[in-house]
Amino acid sequence: MKRNPLVPYFLIFAMGFVIIFFLGIKGIGDAKEIANEGEEGGGEEVAFDPETYANQTCISCHGENLEGSSAPSLHGTGLSKEEVADILTNGTEGGMPAGLVEPDNIDEMAEWISNLK
């Protein structure tokens, strides 16, 4: 007697189909709960850290230690907080793009940059 070699594959397919079907039904039942999770304040708002932001964003142009690379050094610029905030908001003709820092965080970032020594 020869066995049909397709039977194990068919059984595996049928089991997979049944599992996917029931997991889909389970997901539909939990959809409202998952959607409400974000509205209940489940995620904490992280405070803005200018140094971390600079190390993630600014080093590509201003160099690893923000001491200059393809863009000028940010240390000892001699610019006031207001001047730095204006540059962060409007950019410069020299290549600094506007809008890299969220408007809510510009004052904090400007103060940090103006205090770099």
Rank of each mutant, 00 (worst) to 15 (best):
G38V: 11
G38L: 09
G38C: 06
E40N: 14
G42R: 15
G42S: 13
G43P: 07
E44G: 14
E45K: 14
E45H: 04
E45L: 12
E45Q: 15
A47S: 14
F48I: 01
F48V: 01
D49Q: 01
E51S: 11
E51D: 08
E51R: 11
E51W: 05
T52R: 02
Y53K: 08
A54P: 09
A54Y: 09
A54H: 08
N55S: 11
Q56K: 14
T57I: 15
C58P: 11
C58D: 10
S60N: 08
S60F: 07
H62N: 06
G63Y: 10
E64L: 13
E64I: 14
E64V: 10
E64H: 11
L66H: 11
L66V: 11
E67H: 11
E67K: 14
G68P: 00
G68L: 00
S69N: 15
S69Q: 13
S70Q: 10
P72T: 00
P72E: 00
P72Y: 00
P72N: 00
L74P: 09
L74C: 08
L74E: 06
G76F: 04
G76D: 15
G76S: 15
T77H: 12
G78F: 02
S80H: 10
S80V: 11
K81N: 06
K81F: 04
E82V: 01
E82K: 03
E82P: 01
E83T: 06
E83S: 04
V84H: 07
V84N: 03
V84T: 09
A85I: 06
A85P: 11
A85E: 05
D86P: 03
D86T: 12
I87G: 11
L88R: 02
L88F: 04
T89G: 03
T89F: 00
N90I: 02
T92A: 05
E93G: 04
E93H: 05
E93F: 08
E93C: 02
G94L: 08
G95H: 08
G95K: 06
G95W: 10
M96S: 02
M96N: 04
P97A: 05
G99R: 04
L100F: 05
L100N: 08
E102I: 01
P103V: 10
D104N: 13
N105I: 05
N105V: 03
I106V: 12
I106G: 07
D107K: 03
E108M: 03
A110F: 00
E111T: 09
W112G: 06
I113F: 12
